[in-house]
Structure formats: C-alpha cells, structure tokens
C-alpha cells in the first residue's frame, strides 16, 4: 500500500517537473519567436522599399514617390545636438556621485531621481519641454526636439558613468593621491581612463535609445514636409515621419514607413551590439 502510494507520488512529481520544464521551454520559444517574427517582417517589408532614392529624395506629398532624406538628416542633427548637450552633464554628474559624494545625501537623492527619470514615460518629457520651450518661444523647433532628447540622454549617461567609475579600484586612486596628484587630476587622468570603455558604452546606449524615440518629438520638433536644417523651425525626424506615414491611407507612405522602420532598427540594434562588444572585450 505504502509503496504504491509512494510510486504514485513519485510519478506525479516527475510529471509535474517535466510539465514545468516543457512550459519553460515553451516560454523561451514564445519570447524568441516574437523577436524572429518582428525582425523578419521588418526586413521583408523594409527591404522591398529600400533604394537609393530613399537617401537622396525628400519626403513626398501623398500619392507620389520620394525618399526620407530630410527626415534622416533631421534625426541626425537633433540626435547629435542632444548628445552634445546631454553627455557632458551626464558624465559630470556621474563623476560627482562616484568620486566626490559617493555616500552623501545629495548623491543618494539624485541616484533615486535618476533611476526614476531613466524609466519615466518619454511623452511626459515631451510635455515638459513643450511647456518650457515651445510655449514661450511660440513655435515648434529643432532646438526643442534636441533638448527633449537630451533630457533622455542624461540619466542613461549618469547611470553608466557612475557605475563604471565605482568599478575602478580604489588602489588606483590611492596610488595617485600618494604621489600628490590632486583629486581633479586623478579623476581626469586615472579614473576616466580606466572607465573609458564603460562610459563610451553608456553614450552609445543613450544614442541607441534616442534614435528610436518618437513621443518626445511629437510636440517639440513636430515635423516638416520639406528640407530644413534650420534648428529654430519645425524639424522632421525619422520616427515622427514613420508615425505619420504608417497611419496614413497612402500606400507609398506606408512603404516608406516600413523602410524607415528598418533603417532605425538596424541603427539601434547595431549600436547596442557595438556597445555590448565594447564592454565584453573589457571583461
């Protein structure tokens, strides 16, 4: 009797174990399946519309052929400016938090706030920049778009800079201090150099993050049907053009949207893989 009950129990436990293992396998296949499906459709739809004219012609009016030149240039210009604004602030703030005030109250508070900003809804950032820049200036502009993107860059760079500087061994700092190197010089010449790969990774990840951002640009940079590099005027960007074109009823526009989507995805994934390989080599 007891043996039979034991055997039944054993069989039940084995069944349950195998069931759980099967479910785990299925869950992994489910997750990977979406990646394959999304990238597959993207490549299939995007490659079809990929041609030289995508890079040489501006966005077309409804119902005619054209390219994405102005949107690509607008995206590059705003992303560059955003990185130029956001990176120095991010690196300096991360430096303070790792080197000067690792445990003081200001750093603890800002660390918390930075983590919140890191995952805050990006559309709220757009509203913020609209309130402080677009509304007072009276018009949408490329500057406002770049500032909105910079606000997204900062927390990413702060986080990686701080993490990477914290990883620099204290013995290096002590060695520098023992030969009389002032702290600022120690940070710039020793700590930055030791943490360089990690900090660059952070910047690359930040670029990857903002090159696909749409929500904060919708009502800061708005959009522009025409060629424009005037930062003080509404500026087109690839994500916003995709948004507009994909939701339109025109087939040419939808096709361009897919092509633009492929371009963005290749850029973003390329940047993240590059960033990953930078840190992988280091460790």
């Amino acid at each position: 009797m007891a043996v039979a009950a034991n055997n039944a129990l054993y069989a039940r436990r084995r069944l349950r174990n195998n069931l759980a293992k099967g479910l785990a396998l299925a869950a992994t296949a489910f997750g990977l399946g979406w990646l394959v499906l999304i990238l597959g459709v993207l490549v299939f739809e995007g490659l079809g519309g990929l041609s030289l004219s995508v890079f040489t012609e501006n966005t077309p009016p409804p119902g005619s052929a054209g390219g994405l030149l102005n949107a690509i240039v607008g995206s590059i210009v705003m992303t560059t400016l955003a990185v130029l604004i956001g990176t120095p602030i991010g690196i300096l703030a991360g430096t303070y938090m790792a080197e000067y005030g690792r445990h003081d109250r200001l750093s603890t508070l800002v660390r918390f706030i930075n983590d919140i900003l890191l995952s805050a809804p990006s559309i709220v950032i757009g509203l913020f920049v609209y309130e402080v820049m677009v509304a007072p200036m009276g018009h949408f502009s490329g500057y406002a778009g770049a500032v909105a993107l910079a606000v997204i860059v900062i927390p990413v760079v702060v986080r990686t800079t701080e993490d990477m500087l914290t990883l620099v061994p204290d013995t290096l700092r002590e060695a520098a201090a023992s030969i009389g190197l002032p702290r600022a010089h120690m940070i710039v010449r020793i700590a930055y150099r030791a943490a360089r790969a990690g900090i660059v990774t952070g910047i690359l990840l930040a670029i990857a993050r903002i090159s696909g951002e749409t929500a904060p640009l919708l009502f800061t940079a708005l959009n522009n049907q025409f060629w424009s590099v005037d930062m003080n005027a509404p500026m087109p960007s690839l994500p916003v053009v995709i948004f507009q074109f994909a939701l339109s009823p025109y087939e040419e526009w939808q096709k361009l949207a897919w092509t633009g989507a492929l371009l963005i995805t290749v850029t973003v994934l390329g940047l993240s893989i590059l960033a990953r390989s930078l840190t992988a080599r280091k460790s």
Partner: peptide, 29 residues
C-alpha cells in the same frame, strides 16, 4: 587647488541640474 575646487563645483552643478530637471518636469506639469 583652484582647478580641483572648480572641478568639484562643476560636477556638483551637474548633479544639481539632474535634480532641477525632475523638479522642472513636475513643476511644468
């Protein structure tokens, strides 16, 4: 010593800027 102090002040200002951004977001909303 001057560059040391200056660097410290600059980095601290950057930290305060991050703080200001969040306060700015909340205030603007």
């Amino acid at each position: 010593r001057a560059t040391d102090t200056a660097f410290r002040i600059v980095t601290r200002t950057a930290v305060l800027a991050v703080l200001a951004i969040l306060s700015g977001v909340i205030l603007a909303l």
